Simulated scan of single mutants.
Amino acid sequence: MSVTPKILILTGSYGNGHLEVTRSLIAELNKRGITDIVTSDLFYEAHPILTNVTRKLYIKSFSKGQNIYGFLYYKSDYRLTDFRIDRMIDKYGYMRISQLMKENEFDLVINTFPMQALPIYKQRSKPETPFINVLTDFCLHTRWISDSIDYYFVACNSLKDELTATGINENKITVSGIPIKEEFYVYDKLSLPEKNNRNQIKKLLISAGAHGVLKDLAQIIEELKSKEDLHITVVCGSNKLLFNKLMQNYQNNANITILGYVSNMASLMNQSDIMVTKAGGISLSEALAIRIPLILTPAVPGQEKDNARFFEKEGMAIVTKSEDEIAPAVLALLKQPLLSRSLTKQMENHFHPHASAIIVDKVLTLIDKPTLYKEPFHDSKEIKN
């Protein structure tokens, strides 16, 4: 390995998760003195118009068009069907990755977005550069899968099992967790007794999200605001319309705090007793680090619904099917401290700290020995264009 390796990180701008993972990996690489890093939103750079259309569809899926997004998500999983639109998208991605690899001499490519453009390039060009996939959810989609990928980092043991069941060598997989900001690891399990011995005022944190995840948040607040022993904090993110509406309604209520975009989410989560949030891979990973009892909002079909199913199956969250179930779920957790403890205990069993450091430690050895984990390509489904 050269003293200062040059690294390409591929990301995507569908939601904030892939970008957050990218930022976390860059921060860890920078700590090691590695700064020669190129980031690429591969599909946007290859075809901005098509990417903007599909990105808008993704955002609308939180309020409208859920069935359309779910259709596209599950249709593009080749375990279920053969879907030609993805072939076209991957073709554009292949052209862009070919251009990037031609213009640069990368020592490593880290991918944080589900795509088959990398395997296409690997099969055709056979580069020596190690290609790494960092999965950003707790569920598997086949757009992550290919024997052409040299190494995988996954969120949980069940994902490793799923990958090996598809034929991926288990020696090419590390259960690292999903990279998140280091500040979330400050609040480890030593702080749990302090949480359990708080005074009688309980704190509820609602992460409303920027894309209208909750359609009638005001109604949920109305159902809960009468509880004098409950303080509600709502984080609206970049949703200024929601922030202004809630501020108008509740700015004079001492038991309700309305916040816009915040930079201290880890601290807010650690100070809270219950959190209501959507089932994104990053949000769930942050909750695992803090070990805060979770109520998950109704999930849109796709990776977030599959994430929610996993957390419900493993006893790490209460999953709601409609917004009418959220307030009763909050009240149930407040009345049942043993249930809250059960959720956090299960989280502890599935928590993998310092994911970025684990990933960087490993990938640096792959640069040193780029052929160590390589195998002959034998994908069960060959990609055609």
Results as ranks from 00 to 15, higher is better:
168 I>M: 06
167 G>P: 03
157 N>Y: 13
149 I>D: 07
172 K>C: 10
165 A>I: 07
149 I>N: 08
173 I>K: 01
171 N>L: 15
146 S>H: 10
174 T>L: 15
121 Y>G: 06
178 I>C: 09
122 K>W: 15
170 E>H: 09
128 E>C: 06
161 D>G: 01
163 L>I: 07
151 Y>N: 06
135 L>A: 05
172 K>W: 06
185 Y>G: 00
127 P>H: 09
127 P>Y: 15
138 F>N: 01
123 Q>T: 01
122 K>G: 04
143 R>G: 12
127 P>E: 14
154 V>T: 02
182 E>A: 10
137 D>Y: 00
148 S>Y: 12
141 H>P: 05
168 I>Q: 00
128 E>T: 05
183 E>I: 09
134 V>L: 07
180 I>M: 07
179 P>C: 05
138 F>L: 06
178 I>W: 02
152 Y>K: 03
127 P>D: 11
153 F>N: 00
129 T>K: 13
134 V>M: 10
174 T>H: 10
184 F>Q: 12
160 K>R: 15
173 I>W: 03
182 E>M: 04
136 T>N: 09
144 W>E: 10
166 T>R: 14
133 N>Y: 02
173 I>F: 04
134 V>H: 03
123 Q>V: 08
149 I>A: 08
170 E>R: 03
146 S>F: 12
122 K>H: 09
136 T>F: 11
162 E>Q: 09
181 K>C: 09
164 T>G: 10
187 Y>Q: 05
183 E>F: 05
129 T>Y: 11
180 I>W: 06
171 N>A: 10
141 H>S: 14
174 T>N: 07
123 Q>G: 05
141 H>Y: 11
121 Y>M: 13
170 E>M: 09
178 I>Q: 02
160 K>L: 14
127 P>Q: 12
188 D>T: 09
163 L>N: 03
140 L>S: 01
168 I>W: 00
162 E>R: 06
125 S>I: 13
121 Y>L: 10
126 K>S: 12
123 Q>D: 12
127 P>G: 04
187 Y>N: 01
160 K>P: 00
150 D>H: 01
145 I>Y: 11
151 Y>A: 08
145 I>E: 06
157 N>F: 13
151 Y>E: 11
184 F>N: 04
158 S>N: 12
122 K>V: 11
175 V>M: 05
168 I>E: 02
186 V>H: 10
166 T>N: 08
186 V>E: 14
163 L>A: 02
137 D>I: 01
129 T>G: 07
181 K>E: 15
186 V>Q: 15
180 I>C: 02
139 C>K: 03
124 R>K: 14
135 L>G: 05
160 K>E: 15
136 T>R: 02
159 L>C: 06
123 Q>E: 15
140 L>Y: 00
126 K>C: 11
151 Y>W: 11
164 T>M: 14
130 P>K: 03
155 A>I: 03
121 Y>R: 10
165 A>M: 07
189 K>A: 14
185 Y>K: 06
187 Y>R: 04
151 Y>D: 07
148 S>N: 13
178 I>A: 08
182 E>Q: 08
147 D>P: 00
160 K>V: 04
161 D>S: 12
184 F>L: 14
179 P>S: 04
164 T>I: 15
178 I>F: 05
190 L>D: 09
148 S>W: 08
152 Y>D: 04
160 K>Q: 13
177 G>L: 01
